Amino acid sequence: MNSLRAGYELPLLLLAGFRTLVDELHDELARRGHPQARPAHGFAMQAIGPDGATASDIGRRLGISKQAAGKTVDRLIALGYAERGADHADARRRLVRRTTHGDEMLALSAAIFDRLRKQWAQTLGEQQLRTMEDGLRTVAAPNAFRLDTTRWLGD
């Protein structure tokens, strides 16, 4: 039996696992009151951070133009996940802040991801899942996870 596997399968399997988790997350978010939430919204909400950020900051963190960040922010505001307001430290700047609704969506997402991880642990076994996670931490570049991942996938 040949145990050699084609190298191209590994990134496809990793992407398929990622896609499976994210699709299941968004299916449940839709069922639980967030039908218009999209994966890019989660990245943008993280880029806003708990203290708020300017559109320029968000664009830089996501690796997109200020104009694209502005459109994303407009969408988050329309969905009630974010709001624009004055920067109390600098009256010339406008900050984007997450709303309570946005923070609730992020908290719900975290809880759903925890549940999905438990499902994977039941399917694979907790030790096998931990071994996989530890292995990925070992081989992943130190700064491989960045908020601009959606841009990287799209280019």
Rank of each mutant, 00 (worst) to 15 (best):
R61L: 04
D74G: 07
S109R: 05
D27Y: 08
Q67H: 05
Y81C: 04
R117P: 08
V73Q: 11
F145R: 07
R84L: 01
R60H: 15
A44R: 05
A44I: 05
L153V: 03
A82K: 02
Y8K: 11
A69K: 01
A121L: 15
Q119R: 02
R137L: 14
M45R: 00
K66F: 04
Q128Y: 10
G52H: 00
N2V: 01
R75L: 12
T149C: 03
L21C: 06
G17Q: 13
E28C: 12
L136S: 06
A6H: 13
L129I: 03
V139G: 04
G49H: 09
L25A: 03
V96K: 07
I77K: 04
D90M: 11
H88C: 12
G154H: 03
G70A: 15
G59H: 01
V73Y: 13
P35H: 05
I58M: 09
A144C: 11
T72L: 04
A30C: 14
G42F: 12
R146L: 11
L10R: 04
M105Q: 12
D103H: 09
R60S: 15
F43I: 15
I77Y: 08
A86Q: 14
P35N: 06
Q122S: 03
K71E: 13
V22E: 05
R151I: 07
N143E: 12
T54W: 03
A53R: 01
P39T: 01
I77E: 09
L79Q: 13
K118G: 06
A141M: 14
A68D: 01
R5H: 14
A69I: 13
I77A: 10
Q36V: 04
P11T: 14
P11G: 00
L79V: 15
L15M: 14
D51I: 11
R92F: 10
D114T: 09
G52Y: 00
Q67V: 07
L21R: 09
D155Y: 15
D103G: 12
I77P: 06
G85S: 10
T131H: 04
E104L: 13
L147T: 02
L95P: 02
L116Q: 14
F145H: 04
V139S: 00
S56F: 15
L116H: 11
L29T: 02
R151K: 03
G85E: 12
L116D: 06
I64G: 14
G49L: 00
A86F: 07
D74V: 12
T123E: 07
